[in-house]
Nucleic acid binder design. Structure first.
Lengths: 228, 228
DNA sequence: GCGTCGCTATATCGATCCGATATAGTCGGC
DNA sequence: GCCGACTATATCGGATCGATATAGCGACGC
């Protein structure tokens, strides 16, 4: 799951190092807010061992030494020059050596694989992740992803609704009801996405065999798992 | 986190066995929908080793042999009687021996501990869990839990909003925006809970030093982390 | 009869993920 | 000159997940 996130980021944004990957995961994607280093670095090592990414050590100072500092007699002055250079040549703030990673062809293949089904079926995090990279997916697979997710959520919702929140105290009931609300909200979102997918599908409809069937009625059947 | 769920369930519902605990977690609580046996059984073993719960093996037939089957000469007839008895005496469908667990005093202490702070600070699952058992919590702690959670969500929301969804394609943007929406929805829910907590606090207000301060203005400041 | 499917039930394994912690360099403030 | 904040990589133990094994029993079909 993390592998997918890392590969996708490297695919879209080019070269990145671990710390930066984490920031982009937190800020950019919203979900996956707390990927810890304890999972990120092992994941990078894993991917590197598998040949999906390549790493390059980037030392603090630029490899190319530029011009040598002209000896002025003042040691501290020469040091100052070096320091200033280090600051402007690349980075701006207190940093240290880093390892930048870039994706390989094998990595791109792995990315496509992960995006299209393998891995944890679909918890909300891995679904969000897949959807965020959905533009790298062919349209039918995109539809299938959305449909699959919708079915799952509808099932969960039905389960909760049928169990009923009777026999629970105020707090437990509030949790259950809010969970159900959130589920409905999510399903509505998926329906909107499905609709715009169906529209843009245009010429190639019937691609999944049902994508457009009953499409417009979705808004009226939040309760049932789409069996009118 | 699972420990909390198990102990809470045993505290409220009495004796339960592993399989049943899982069902109640799935159906009753909605969240925690997929606790796997791979985490449940180790958790139970853990809790038993720690003395927080006690287990009893419950064999297929009742320990008390009831009356012996009167010999009728027909072996198959006697077997049928035994089978019928097993069916009615306790269970109705194809089952096997189980281990029922009940909470101990040490377990109750541990439950109180887990409920009031220890463990993972607050992801949405463990928060939902704590709230579901909030009636076992003193009112001030309940308020503190809600306030803490609200702050966290507001911070996350601000982070996402400030990062902005520009530079993202349709899908990634949709994910980010939906995440933000869900966050707002959650915050609204917390505000409603906070309000009713504040009201029911009634006589003992100022308990946490702020619970009611600015309470009514919360509805108008979803965007900011409550700094008007 | 007999296989096999589905349900109840417990348990373990490997892989992954998280939270805490260690290490290390740089910068700014006091 | 020391301390805190920030950038950066890495590892460890424990919790969790998904898959799988085992096992008893009922129901269905053939």
């Amino acid at each position: 799951m993390l592998d997918l996130a890392i590969l996708g980021l490297l695919e879209e944004r080019g070269e990145l190092h671990g710390y930066e990957i984490r920031r982009q995961l937190r800020e950019g994607l919203g979900l996956l807010a707390n990927v810890s280093f304890g999972s990120l670095y092992p994941a990078l090592a894993r991917l590197e061992a598998a040949g999906a990414v390549e790493a390059t050590e980037v030392p603090l100072v630029a490899d190319v030494p530029l011009e040598p500092v002209p000896p002025t007699g003042s040691l501290s002055g020469e040091l100052a020059v070096l320091r200033a250079r280090r600051r402007t040549t690349r980075r701006s703030r207190g940093q240290r050596a880093r390892k930048v990673y870039r994706i390989t062809d094998a990595g791109r293949a792995m990315f496509a694989d992960l995006l299209a089904g393998s891995g944890p079926t679909d918890d909300s995090r891995s679904f969000g992740l897949r959807l965020a990279f959905a533009r790298h997916l062919p349209a039918p697979a995109r539809l299938a992803l959305l449909e699959r997710r919708r079915t799952q959520l509808a099932e969960r919702l039905a389960e909760i609704r049928s169990a009923g929140s009777s026999g629970l105290d105020v707090y437990a009931r509030s949790v259950v009801e809010h969970t159900a609300d959130a589920l409905e909200h999510d399903i509505g979102w998926l329906d909107r996405l499905l609709e715009s997918e169906g529209l843009s599908a245009g010429t190639s409809r019937h691609a999944t065999g049902r994508a457009t069937a009953g499409g417009t009625s979705r808004h009226h059947s939040l309760e049932s798992p789409r069996t009118p």
